[in-house]
């Protein structure tokens, strides 16, 4: 049972991160390789808000998440907007550069020390018994948040005006623009939402197990999940996360823990050979890149 819980927690982590990759890719065909860094930035923002609003952990949390949304929108407005319509590769490399910049800034502002946001908020990470196994409060929070985020995104994309516009912009940007959809607003929204979900993931991970710059690598490890599922499919990201998490945890249990580090990427290579567009991705996407 503990095995299933461990897989579920890891899958939730990967899924929550992966949906950030998918959101941006689906709308603007840009792969955001700075996602891990943005995630880390948000978690560090929580540290600051926790000391600003000490005694009010919920407000601190809310403000940090809100700030992350703003960061995402600002990144689009001041940086990625200029890359709209440029070669996709140039845009991707811009996100890489952004990532490098953020890594530097985070250390400059918060130092490289290991931090504990849970302690800063004054929270204790209780351990809860479930179905014969145990799960940490933050882990349970992760699973619930992931479920909520996915349901929320599904409803948003299916039923709200902006959600439908987002899908339209993703399907055919030119046509969408001609129908009066402001692409910049839509793209900014996608960046904001993506950073927001990334922030949730980063914050919850750091509440569970502390915060330092290895957070970036966790963001990168979640990337195979998005790609295995199909870079433009949210459902795919969920399934992909489950596959990668299961492969990783089973590897730790039954083969060699050290392999768990490369397994996501091995699965990724396998997927790229067999079905490059992913389990649920659209095939034509491949030719557009």
């Amino acid at each position: 049972m503990q095995l299933a819980i461990n897989i579920a927690v890891l899958a939730a982590i990967y899924a929550l991160i992966a949906c950030g990759y998918v959101l941006i890719y689906r709308v603007s065909r840009v792969l955001n390789l700075a996602h891990g860094e943005l995630m880390m930035l948000s978690s560090y923002l929580l540290l600051t808000t926790a000391s600003l609003f000490s005694g009010n952990p919920l407000i601190a949390l809310g403000v940090a998440v809100g700030l992350s949304l703003c960061v995402g929108v600002l990144v689009y407005l001041f940086l990625m907007r200029r890359m709209t319509g440029e070669m996709v590769l140039a845009a991707v490399l811009t996100t890489v550069a952004l990532g490098v910049l953020l890594r530097g800034l985070v250390v400059l502002i918060w130092s490289a020390q290991q931090q504990n946001p849970a302690q800063a908020l004054g929270w204790v990470n209780y351990s809860l018994p479930v179905f014969g196994g145990r799960i940490s409060a933050a882990g349970a929070g992760l699973i619930m948040t992931t479920a909520l985020v996915y349901v929320g995104l599904f409803l948003f994309l299916r039923f709200t005006r902006y959600g439908i516009r987002m899908r339209a912009a993703g399907q055919n940007p030119l046509l969408a623009a001609q129908r009066g959809i402001s692409l910049h607003v839509i793209y900014a929204l996608a960046w904001g939402l993506s950073t927001l979900t990334g922030a949730l993931a980063g914050i919850l991970i750091s509440l569970d197990s502390g915060l330092d710059s290895t957070m970036v690598l966790i963001g990168l490890k979640a990337f195979p999940a998005a790609l295995v599922g199909g870079l433009d499919s949210l459902a795919g990201a969920l399934i992909g996360a489950l596959i990668i998490a299961a492969a990783e945890v089973l590897m730790i249990y039954y083969v060699d823990a050290l392999l768990s580090d490369v397994v996501p990427f091995l699965v990724l290579i396998l997927m790229l050979i067999v079905r490059p567009w992913g389990l649920f991705g659209t095939r034509e996407e491949l030719d557009r890149v």
């Binding site: 461990n6 882990g139 490890k221 730790i252 249990y253 580090d261």
Partner: peptide, 20 residues
């Protein structure tokens, strides 16, 4: 004996093995 790769988001799987 658990050898844990540095960027591990969740240590529980390793801990589970030690406990079990």
């Amino acid at each position: 004996k658990q050898i844990i790769p540095p960027p591990t988001p969740d240590y529980t799987p390793f801990a589970t093995l030690i406990k079990d």
